[in-house]
């Protein structure tokens, strides 16, 4: 049975318009560059196809694995069991919230409805915010994909530390100054589930076989839900790599501040799933500074176009503003500091 969600449906045209505008501008710039330089279009097309395949095929297994894990967790792990071990202090709750992602491995799309569900079950504000911001990175799938893309080194460690640091600071600030009753939108208490939740139905009384089937079904839905973002993200990244001259990128991203700023804006616009963004960032390694890459990897999973739209469906506008602004500023600051420390 198909269930319509008025709020989700009303957001889709905005997303479509943004994607179409973005794709149209990139395509126009690409065609202009190709015609101006007199490039061989056939050669350019083959290069694009190879780069698209390189990004897409490499990322698909991780998205599939992440989706299946998400389905299994959704089906077999009871939220109440996790909530039993809640820390009492605000800082402890924020730190605990960052680690909660290991129990609920969700991407930035799935984390919003999960956080709302946890808030309804009595999760402290600071813990919920920390989970919301950190969970898209703090899960085994994203650790694995970052490790495969960059190996065990500065980028992986920097991404983990920066994610935890930013999530804890933002969660503590919001937890200290915001009234928990003024955080969630009143409508969100009764609202239907976002994004991944249209397929969720009572599974408590089901047998093992039915639960497994349900987990696979939820995983498949998650995969198809995120798949379109992966196709769009891979296409946009391949287009950028193929058509935008490296010199232009270098000019835009030169300097310890501008490079970080540009990569954060790119992360926001691309809205690529956190399970696969490492492979996109890998393509920019030779073009941008290490601080910019780490900021891209830390900021992207926390806030992007699609998650911001979902935030507005759950949180009040003021909180959404802080949820976007604080991670942006903190990641920018950290990225610049990393660049300066590395002598960029």
């Amino acid at each position: 049975m198909r269930i319509d969600h008025p709020r989700t449906a009303s957001l889709l045209p905005i997303k479509r318009v943004i994607f179409v505008l973005l794709a149209a501008s990139v395509l126009s710039a690409a065609l202009y560059q190709a015609l101006r330089a007199g490039d061989d279009l056939y050669l350019t097309a083959t290069v694009f196809a190879t780069r698209f395949l390189g990004i897409f095929i490499e990322a698909v297994p991780f998205l599939l694995l992440g989706s299946l894990t998400s389905g299994l967790i959704e089906t077999f792990v009871k939220t109440d069991d996790v909530l039993r071990f809640l820390p009492r202090s605000r800082l402890g709750a924020a730190l605990g919230g960052t680690l909660l992602g290991l129990v609920f491995p969700v991407c930035e799309c799935g984390v919003v409805p999960v956080t709302r569900r946890l808030f309804r079950k009595g999760l402290p504000l600071s813990m919920g915010v920390a989970f919301l911001l950190a969970a898209p990175f703090m899960n085994p799938i994203v650790f694995a994909s970052t490790y495969i893309a960059f190996g065990f080194g500065g980028v992986l460690i920097g991404r983990a530390l920066l994610t935890v640091l930013v999530a804890v600071i933002v969660a503590t600030v919001i937890g200290s100054f915001a009234d928990p009753r003024e955080v969630l939108k009143p409508s969100s208490e009764k609202a239907g589930e976002d994004c991944h939740d249209h397929h969720h139905h009572p599974i408590g009384g089901l047998g093992l076989r039915a639960k497994l089937f349900s987990a696979v079904q939820i995983g498949a839905d998650d995969f198809f839900e995120m798949g379109r973002f992966l196709i769009l993200g891979s296409g946009l990244a391949a287009l950028l790599q193929t058509f935008v001259p490296q010199d232009s990128l270098l000019a835009l991203g030169s300097g310890p501040i501008m490079s970080v700023l540009f990569m954060q804006i790119l992360a926001f616009l691309l809205s690529v799933c956190s399970t696969v963004d490492s492979f996109l960032a890998l393509a920019f390694v030779n073009t941008f500074s290490t601080g910019a890459i780490i900021s891209f990897l830390s900021f992207g999973p926390m806030v992007d176009i699609k998650s911001t739209l979902m935030f507005t469906g759950v949180f009040r506008r003021k909180i959404v503003f802080y949820l976007v602004l604080l991670p942006f500023v903190l990641n920018l600051l950290a990225g610049v500091l990393i660049n300066v420390a590395l002598g960029y």
């Binding site: 449906a9 395949l53 897409f56 095929i57 249209h198 198809f224 798949g227 379109r228 992966l230």
Partner: peptide, 21 residues
Amino acid sequence: TGVMLGLLIGLIMSKSGSDQT
């Protein structure tokens, strides 16, 4: 490669398209 990729992309696009209707 194209056939497999086409099936995958086609499935994803049609599934997300039917979810939006």
